[in-house]
Design a protein around this nucleic acid. Structure first.
Lengths: 338, 338
DNA sequence: TTGTATGCGTTATCAA
DNA sequence: TTGATAACGCATACAA
């Protein structure tokens, strides 16, 4: 796959490569006639600068690295969509890595990312990342980093997140206001920021409405097969009148569990999910949800990252951008009695 | 972000860069003691070869380019997952591009891909790509290409697809066998390979069972907002007793349209989708589907591509790998009478 | 206004 | 067994 180089043009036009280079970059110190010649010929041969050579020279790649737990998760694929939209507009490429919820894999990804000389990094932590030392000092070493969605308190850096606490609060408040009193919570891994924030919102809502917090009504679920179903079953043993689920995966598992047990939703148990499930309105009964601004989150994080990269604003104080969630109540999903 | 280079090691150990290079590559012609020294020091400094320098030298990038219509589409995100799994195992990175169903955008993507010097290309055509000249001759120029899912007849190359005709046939056959006679088809754009194959399967099933093919029972839908709903409405005017929908998007639009019109599924109209919707079994009634092997398709395409790249098997005859679809019948979804 | 030389990190060729 | 040098494609400091 031989491509046209600056050398080819120089040879053909009997001038030096530096002249060609300058002409192409529209340098002021070049003869208009020469410039014209070079540009025309370059156009004719469809010359494209070799980005790899540029990377080597300039020690940057015009690419940003993105690490997500799983790409085939609607939330993350939407976020990546947002990232890609911004990156494309600003002339950057996106190199995607999946941690598959594995700490080890995430560490390897970061190594690759650094070796690849990406100009910046967007990361949402894996479900099993508790030690974040592989991510420390990246900023200091000169690699701009923006965490999104699943972030860590252990690193002072730029973050873009959803307002999970507010989202969970709104969800639980709604359940309470529609008559629920024993609201169970199916959450993700307890050390994840999103989990902690959602649990906090859950507790805050209970407290505001004078309901007592009962540990037995919370279960934390990892990503292994069958885990969600098992934990939902345990929750059902506690005879809740509502289930608040903290993710797509858990919402689906929960609905499936209720369906199998022929438990009437929402009469016996109401269900409200922190999810981006597309078909939520088509479920029966329709699923009320707290929906995350996935695309917007990718969008915002990428924009911030590229600002950091281009305007060298790394020295600016680290900021956490918090995006609002949206409570979408679907009819008949939450009424205790018809 | 200064990283350790071969030069740093050479300087520290007072030997030449070539010796270091050879030691690191475990060359036979090197003093074991020197080798030990170099390896130890490299390990200590956590030396990683600069992939960009290697790319420049070897004129390859150990990265493959992937062009898909939309990443936040469950089918494609699953396919990418399959691609990434293989690529990771074989030491390649994945650079993702979205055409957003736009021909122009796809052309630009291909330019970028070529400039980036990816070692190979996986592509699923945009919905508005009819002219494929931007993709011709890539193989001849030495860039291995594998088309997947949405392919073209106009280029003789490697392809990995689902058996769309068989899938549609099974779907329609099932509808017929459960008593349907007026089976409408909501299809995607008519020039797409997947559309043509699914229509062919639809026709074949009708023919086998002696039903007449009625043009009025087919609609082709582009990706604009509201289009699917409009076309489904037109189909409903034809009083069908079943709807076969050719994608996730169309299946959801169709279910929504029926729900709004309070049409009883499946009593009045049965619905069967060519989709990968996760929540299909939780819909009411559960949605029977023909499900595509998305992950497997990505997996297979990436494996083939990497074989082409590494074993230089480009000269081999072009092959089309056809993967089976699966008909998943959900209870109560397809019975005309209870 | 243009050309020459150098370097980015690495490997390969050739020489020692 | 090791070292010096050139090359990959490009940009730039310096020389002319």
């Amino acid at each position: 796959l031989h491509t046209v180089t600056i050398k080819d043009i120089a040879k053909a036009l009997n001038i030096s490569t530096s002249t060609v280079s300058r002409a192409l970059r529209d340098s002021y110190e070049i003869n208009p006639e020469t410039k014209r010649l070079v540009l025309e010929y370059a156009e004719k041969l469809n010359y494209r600068p070799n980005p790899i050579a540029l990377s080597l020279k300039e020690n940057r790649s015009r690419a940003i690295g993105v690490v997500v737990p799983e790409i085939d998760n609607y939330f993350f694929s939407q976020a990546i969509n947002g990232i890609e939209a911004i990156a494309y507009n600003r002339g950057y490429h996106v190199v995607i890595f999946q941690s598959h919820e594995s700490y080890e894999r995430e560490v390897v990804n970061i190594e690759h990312i650094i070796a690849r000389k990406v100009d910046g990094l967007l990361i949402s932590l894996s479900g099993h990342t508790t030690d974040v030392s592989h991510l420390k000092n990246l900023e200091e070493k000169g690699l701009p980093v923006v965490f999104f969605d699943r972030v860590t308190d252990d690193i002072d850096t730029h973050k873009v997140v959803a307002d999970n606490e507010e989202g969970a609060f709104k969800a639980v408040e709604h359940l309470i206001q529609t008559g629920r009193k024993r609201i169970a919570l199916a959450a993700s891994l307890p050390w994840l920021s999103i989990t902690q924030e959602r649990v906090a919102g859950y507790k805050a809502a209970l407290e505001k409405y004078g309901l007592t917090y009962d540990e037995n009504l919370i279960r934390y679920c990892d990503f292994t097969v069958g885990e969600a179903d098992k934990k939902v079953a345990e929750l059902l043993d506690q005879k809740p009148d509502a289930l608040f689920t903290a993710s797509d995966r858990l919402a689906l598992a929960c609905l499936a569990a209720l369906k199998i047990r022929k438990i009437d939703i929402p009469k016996e148990v109401a269900v409200l999910g922190f999810t981006n499930i597309k078909a939520a309105s088509l479920l029966s009964p329709p699923l009320s949800v707290v929906s995350q601004p996935a695309f917007e989150m990718g969008h915002t994080a990428a924009d911030l990252l590229l600002d950091l990269i281009e305007k060298k604003q790394r020295a600016l104080p680290f900021q956490t951008i918090k995006l609002s969630t949206e409570l979408i109540v679907r009819e008949s999903s939450q009424n205790k009695e018809p």
